[in-house]
C-alpha cells in the first residue's frame, strides 16, 4: 500500500500522514485524550495524575491573587450592569422550565 506523505516547509522534510494524525487534537503526553470524548477515559487520567498535584498549586498559587481581583474589581460595577440589563427583561421573557 502506498505510504502517504506531504512536505512540511517548517521542518524541511516530508511528514507521513497516518490515520491517527488528525482526529483528537493534542495534549501533554501523559494526558492523551480524545477531543470528541475527552471526558470519558481521559478524566480518569486527569484526576489520577496532575489534578492531585494541581489542586495544591491551585490553592497555593494563582488563585490567591485571582480572588483579590475578584472581590476588588469587577464585582462592584459589574453587578450594576448585570442586574440593570439582561436579567430584568430576560427573566420575564423566560417562559419554560419546571
Amino acid at each position: 500500500m502506498d505510504r502517504l506523505s506531504v512536505f512540511s516547509e517548517k521542518i524541511g522534510r516530508p511528514i507521513a500522514v497516518t490515520d491517527g494524525m488528525v482526529g483528537g487534537g493534542i495534549s501533554t503526553g501523559a494526558f492523551r485524550m480524545e477531543a470528541a470524548s475527552w471526558s470519558d477515559g481521559g478524566w480518569n487520567n486527569y484526576s489520577g495524575s496532575w489534578l492531585d498535584n494541581g489542586w495544591n498549586n491551585y490553592s497555593d498559587g494563582w488563585t490567591d491573587s485571582g480572588w483579590n481581583n475578584y472581590s476588588g474589581g469587577w464585582v462592584d460595577s459589574g453587578w450594576n450592569n448585570y442586574s440593570g440589563s439582561w436579567s430584568d427583561g430576560g427573566w420575564n421573557n423566560y417562559s419554560g422550565g419546571k
Binding site: 512540511s8 516547509e9 521542518i11 511528514i15 500522514v17 494524525m21 488528525v22 470528541a36
Partner: peptide
C-alpha cells in the same frame, strides 16, 4: 497551516 501542525487538528 503547515503539515507540521496537523497533529493539533481534530475532526469535530
Amino acid at each position: 497551516v503547515d503539515p507540521y501542525y496537523w497533529k493539533y487538528f481534530a475532526m469535530v
